[in-house]
Amino acid sequence: MTKLILSTGNIVSGGPSIIRKPGAFRSNLELTNSLRSNFLAAQEDAAAELHANGATNGNGNSSGNSESVDLDAETGTTGRVPTAAWTGRDQNGALYVPRIHWDHDHHHGLQEERAQYDITAKLFFLPGAPVSERSRYAREALEHVLQELRVPEVDLLIVSFPGMSFEGDCEWEADRRNAVQGNDEDEIATWPAIEELHRLGLAKRLGLAEFGSEKLARFLSKAQVRPTVNQINLKNCCNVPPPLAQLAKEQSIELLVHSDCTDILPKGTLRELLGPGPRGAGILADPETGAGGLQGDLTPLWVVKYTAVVRDRGVIENKGYFAGAELADG
């Protein structure tokens, strides 16, 4: 069993991957594009470094297989930078894709004092991952965010459960459909772990995503630490279903807008991102030839999106994603 941690780094000035494409509403392109471009950047850096080492030393002295790599080739699997050159492992054996240098000050943390920021983390529990482990996932995801931003806590932690959406012709229909989506039991069972993060002071406020009026009412009756935010998705229509608007008002729950999709990292997408194909990172072995790389069944477990906004200036200083996955040994 190998744990994988994927990261995007700060994507806010990272170029086009942050731009919403027409027709790509509610897509996960921001996540997949920015993962892909972060992998690419890491590979390029590693290649440049290997190249530099190779040029000065004659042959690579740190990595045994570097001489077999044709660094000048731009395409083709032979041109790949070896995985070990741009990924890293922590003391527990988790594989970081790409490697994160936590000790590099200029890559992590925020420019100003903590109080200047409004920091939001949104945690996506993914459909294929075991519900029983969500407590661990939540902790792990949030810790990565805190470490990345070098802050003791986030202001708002929003939780997104699988299988929920807020779609349909506005008004009543979306709300009605929503009532039977997701899994009430699992969601309620997960919440204490989230509440614990709040009690530990790691998240000042808690929030939900995609809860319609009925689900929200049921949820509130069971929650000890109440969510103060419910993120909903509004396509082109601006009418919040009246029952939801009313409930939110009565319960002082802020209704925020988002445009994320709930199934943000499907298994196939992850496999493609890490796979041997032309748009993949070449970490996974080629299933047909079995050549090079890791083998086994890959399961995405969680994704966390984080945003740090300078409060009184409305400037997004840092935004990025971490994703956790597990590779069952094949």
Binding site: I18, I19, R20, T120, C238, V240, L256, V257
Partner: peptide
């Protein structure tokens, strides 16, 4: 070319905006 309005929308997607406000801005 991405367009200034899609850029503004991408910005709004990345900050916490309440429903009523976002609709006015839209």
């Amino acid at each position: 070319f991405p367009g200034l309005i899609p850029l503004v929308e991408s910005y709004l997607d990345s900050v916490n905006v309440d429903v009523a406000t976002r609709c006015q801005l839209a």
